[in-house]
Write a protein that binds this DNA or RNA. Structure first.
Lengths: 250, 250
DNA sequence: CGAAGGTTTGAGAAAGTTCAAAGCTGGTGG
DNA sequence: CCACCAGCTTTGAACTTTCTCAAACCTTCG
């Protein structure tokens, strides 16, 4: 809470690499995937491949578990711009009825992704018999709820630049590679997609990224490779950096 | 989907009055509350009374069930404006770990509200033995997820006026009283609070409400009483009115 | 190497914010 | 029962931020 704590480049705030869960939880997660695997369909989704467009909770509703990659929930109402509503990382869970009934709703793989799909009914049965499944479901859903509520707060309360910084921090935490003095990561979304997620337009987003580059907070090679030269400086661009670390740095 | 369907003032799009669940579900809901009641603490929250400020999922985490009234999740980071992150209506469920770890986070009763509180551990046990509880939990959580994702879309994709209209529609659906030719309802939030929820400032919000009044879409008596003289006209102010009806008009 | 499509940048326009002042409302006490 | 006060709400004017549009510029991929 103090200045001392903020200025320290603590290890626990650094990205840990691209793993859905870490430490002790890793073993349990392996169990979970093994338990589910025999009851589910594996999906290997190519980038920009839409996964489904069928909200609503009927008897045959499906549930997805993201095993690897990066998936977003997007909608595209007629005559309106596409909007990206939420992000899903490995370990995340998504029921079809989590999607609001709106035009063009669907999951979109933003990078090569790997998912399990099964009927919700089946999953509910499995939760009853396998504690590891029900524990993961409840724990993960709570994390996702918190992230989603936070995203509403980000859109509502932060300046454009802080929003962009917050998203970069999130990406770094979830799929960054820590190196000697910084973090490198690939942007899984195009400028236009990031803009749609952050309630900006692509031009403004580009301007902000240019500003961050000229400030020396990040540098860029190619279109997607970002190197956050100074992790602390990037965190300082976002007033919710501590919250992001807490929610994504599990 | 067609013009015909849109122009018809269909009954199923009109508010049904202030009940947490309706129709056949009403009986099951009564069962649910009875089942929970003996294991939970009843809370009668006065308006503007903060309910808790303790996010994080420890062993003694609590879960709330909103029985009556209207509750919001708000945060107030130091030196920053308060932000209202989400709304909770009767029937809604809230685990402490659904709250992102951010300064000044807490539930706030916006009108006289009635909640049940119990330990999450206890609730998880009850879900195992009482199907009505587990069904409600899963079904309601899906609805809340969808609403929260939609809220992100509202903040990101709609103009200020459409955001305001969407919130008014939501209030009307959840606590409106249908009358001969329109719907009347009380605003549970002050102008400043609505603004905080919609990512506007209070001045702009006031201007927009004035505009809606001068357009004849709504009229106002006192500070809180709103009468939507022409329900169809109000729906037409929001491009997501159909989605709102689907999510709130259960 | 060249085409296609995403990205960056500038200039003008629109939307929303800020600040300040006036106007209401609802509650309190005489 | 009315007057008054505190606090919320409304409105105006100037300002800031972000958006739009257009053109130029890169990357990537065939």
């Amino acid at each position: 809470m103090t200045t001392q704590q903020r200025s320290r480049q603590s290890d626990d705030e650094m990205p840990k690499g691209p793993s859905p869960t870490r430490g002790n939880a890793l073993l349990r997660y392996a169990d979970l995937v093994r338990d589910l695997d025999s009851h589910a369909t594996q999906i290997h989704a190519q980038p920009r491949k839409n996964l489904f467009i069928e909200p609503g909770a009927d008897a045959d509703e499906v549930i997805y578990l993201v095993l690897a990659g990066f998936v977003v929930l997007e909608c595209k109402p007629e005559n309106e711009r596409r909007r990206i509503l939420r992000t899903l990382y490995p370990g995340d869970i998504f029921r079809a009825s989590f999607a609001p009934p709106i035009g063009g709703i669907g999951l979109l793989a933003a990078m090569p992704s790997n998912l399990l799909r099964l009927k919700w009914r089946k999953f509910e049965d499995l939760m009853k018999s396998e504690k590891v499944i029900s524990d993961h479901y409840h724990q993960r859903l709570a994390n996702q709820e918190a992230r989603l509520a936070l995203h509403a707060g980000v859109l509502g309360g932060l300046t454009a630049q802080a929003r962009v910084a917050s998203l970069l921090i999130e990406f770094a935490l979830c799929m960054g590679q820590p190196s000697t003095d910084g973090v490198s990561f690939d942007l899984p979304l195009s400028r236009a997609e990031m803009a749609d997620y952050l309630a900006l337009n692509a031009d403004t987003l580009s301007r902000i990224i240019s500003r961050l580059k000229s400030k020396g907070v990040i540098s860029q090679s190619g279109r997607q490779k970002i190197f956050a030269h100074n992790w602390r400086a990037l965190l300082d661009e976002s007033p919710i950096s501590k919250t992001l670390v807490a929610l994504h740095g599990i």
